[in-house]
């Protein structure tokens, strides 16, 4: 039941007393509350009566778990491919190209790497960086990092602007969707990292978002027991990207700064570096990255 102090994103309320006849308004509120409580009681009573009359439908009565011929089935990356990766052979990034829901994607899965965030001009000559891509967005008005951000235990930004989050604490990366994550404080306590971005997939279900433009898309995903980065080859809608990740059976995914200007690169197993985008002449000072470094 919604508490007196609860509020959702579509509501506003004036906090202080608006006029001197506040007591009168209080009594109106009380009447409304009593009416609502009475209605709730009637509805509950009706539900209880209905339950006693109608026999419960059991799980065995339901047949809608069978898949229809033309119903879409979840896409599956070849299990054999996934299981055959030898994750004991040092630090590397496994790269696989695939097509999901008609969209061309590349999945970058780092193994035996150290994840961390970085703010500022990233050293492109650093041989320890195997995978690097921009992480949190910046505010248009003042160039500061958009959404809560913790860098090596130091909070640089606090506001909740997006529901998706990534926390890196003691070398462990967690991707999730929540308005209020205790991992923000844990990141401060443990000298870790935290940032926020659009939620794309929440517990296996695609999340719809507002941006309606087409762009090159990137996502940080919790997929099977791994963290990976998925990149679109083409300019696509954010919501189409989310549904493709859902089809890919990603558990949770958040957006990473995309577009053809977003900086980043990957080093393949032969040591060859490929940049995700054209080089930008100017990058704001708060441009920030998620890095996966060699151990």
């Amino acid at each position: 039941m919604k508490g007196k102090t609860d509020i959702n994103e579509n509501e506003i309320r004036v906090i202080g007393k608006e006029t001197h006849d506040g007591d009168k308004r209080m009594s109106t509120h009380t009447i409304v509350t009593i009416v609502l409580l009475a209605l709730t009681a009637v509805v509950l009573l009706a539900i209880l009566l209905m339950r006693n009359r109608a026999p419960m439908e059991t799980a065995s009565d339901l047949t809608d778990t069978e898949e229809g011929l033309f119903e879409g089935t979840a896409y599956d990356i070849d299990d054999e491919w996934y299981e055959n990766i030898d994750s004991t052979q040092g630090s590397f990034v496994d790269i696989i190209d695939t097509v999901v829901d008609g969209l061309s994607l590349t999945i970058y899965t780092p193994y035996n790497t150290l994840p961390e965030l970085f703010v500022g001009e990233v050293d492109e000559t650093d041989p320890s960086i195997l995978l690097c891509t921009q992480a949190a967005d910046l505010r248009r008005d003042n160039g500061k990092i958009l959404g809560a951000y913790v860098y090596r235990g130091e909070p640089l930004a606090w506001e909740l602007s997006k529901r998706g989050y990534c926390a890196i604490i003691d070398g462990k990366t967690t991707v999730g969707v929540s308005d209020n994550s205790p991992l923000f404080e844990d990141a401060i306590e443990h000298k870790g990292y935290f940032f926020r971005q659009y939620a794309l997939v929440d517990n296996g279900s695609a999340v719809r978002n507002n941006p309606e433009n087409k762009s090159l898309r990137r996502a940080l995903c919790a997929w099977r027991d791994r963290i990976c980065i998925v990149v679109s080859h083409d300019r696509i809608l954010m919501n189409d990207f989310s549904y493709a990740l859902e089809t890919l059976r990603v558990r949770d995914a958040i957006y990473l700064v995309g577009s053809s200007y977003a900086h980043g690169w990957v080093e393949d197993r032969d040591g060859k570096r490929s940049f995700f985008s054209e080089h930008s002449q100017h990058r704001p000072k708060n441009t920030n990255y998620i890095l996966f470094k060699k151990k």
Binding site: I7, E9, E11, I12, R13, I15, G16, K17, L160, D179
Partner: peptide, 13 residues
């Protein structure tokens, strides 16, 4: 008290 009427909560954050 009445100064507080200037303050408006918008959504959760």
């Amino acid at each position: 008290e009445y100064e507080g009427a200037k303050y408006i909560r918008i959504g959760k954050s």
